[in-house]
């Protein structure tokens, strides 16, 4: 059994460590995800665990084993986010997970599978009713932000339905980043194990790039230039408009696909705009962080 140690703090800054670890699992060998020392996990971390486990299965191994966090707080939070419901189809794990309460949830968007258009409708329905209060009270966004927030989620989930040709997951939650940023943030994560950007765009655009065609150039083509596999000029607006809206809110967006990660990051985030040479991992993994308005914001 090949052991993958899950970082103690599993969030948008450390998920590549986990995904690179999964990519190193030998074909046909069973993986063990060791999460005993996880103290903190955000939507990116939870979805990375799910796609990591599913990728390990794809590599020909038996369902991987997940050693659950020792922290009762982390277990409770994973339960509230609906992690264990989705993990049942991916991992083998001990049956000591807390039951989800029946009271009102504090979660912005539980982990939700995205397989078809109807799932995108469901996501928009849920966030439209729940996000208004959080965006206004925690982030200080205007009431109309609910619409733009819902549109972001719709477009980013459609990326799975339209391009990945494989199921994926979405989740979102608000956090007080008091130490890291001194403000509340909303974290959105969308991940799939599909064809990835290079696979989706290759047939249409690879020839023009010649030897330069790679995961990094495919991400640049889609993220910066709005290219898609469709010849229709109405396509490709989703990611472009998400980028612009995230920028208006002074947020950060990064996308990992294959061996590269591209990002549009504000001054408060020190992530590089492009990282290449990561371990090959299938699909696309999108992270969006939207911070509360600060006094200096227009």
């Amino acid at each position: 059994m090949q052991v993958i140690t899950i970082p103690g703090s599993l969030d948008h800054q450390t998920v590549d460590e986990l995904l690179d670890g999964v990519a190193s699992v030998e074909e046909g060998r069973r993986a063990l995800f060791d999460g005993r020392h996880v103290r903190w996990v955000d939507p990116n971390g939870m979805l990375a665990l799910l796609v990591g486990g599913a990728a390990a299965v794809q590599r020909g191994g038996a369902p991987p084993r997940l050693e659950l966090p020792e922290s009762a707080d982390v277990l409770g939070y994973l339960s509230r986010m609906g992690f264990f419901r989705e993990a049942q189809g991916v991992f083998e794990f001990e049956d000591r997970t807390p039951k989800r309460g029946s009271g009102p949830s504090d979660v912005l968007l539980e982990i939700t599978p995205v397989r078809a258009n109807v799932d995108v409708h469901e996501v928009v329905n849920r966030v439209q009713t729940r996000s208004g209060a959080i965006l206004a009270s925690k982030l200080g966004y205007p009431a109309t932000a609910v619409v733009q927030f819902s549109v972001i989620l719709s477009e980013v989930c459609q990326n799975i339905v339209e391009h990945a040709e494989s199921p994926g997951w979405v989740a979102a939650q608000a956090y007080n980043w008091s130490k890291r940023l001194g403000r509340w943030v909303v974290v959105i994560s969308v991940m799939d194990l599909g064809r990835g950007f290079r696979g989706s765009l290759g047939a249409e655009h690879a020839a023009r790039y010649g030897d330069r065609w790679s995961d990094a150039t495919a991400l640049e083509a889609a993220f910066l230039h709005g290219l898609t596999r469709f010849p229709d000029s109405g396509r490709g607006q989703g990611i472009q408009q998400i980028r612009r809206q995230v920028q208006r809110w002074n947020g950060a967006i990064t996308i990992r696909s294959g061996t590269a990660r591209i990002g549009q990051v504000p001054e408060w985030d020190d992530a590089p705009p492009l990282t290449d040479g990561l371990a090959p991992f299938p699909g696309a993994q999108i992270s969006i962080v939207l911070p509360a308005r600060s006094a200096g914001d227009a």
Partner: peptide, 15 residues
């Protein structure tokens, strides 16, 4: 209509 995304705006208006 409460929410209209870019894909629908493209289909229902532009196309």
């Amino acid at each position: 209509v409460t929410i209209m995304d870019f894909s629908c705006a493209d289909e229902v208006v532009a196309k």
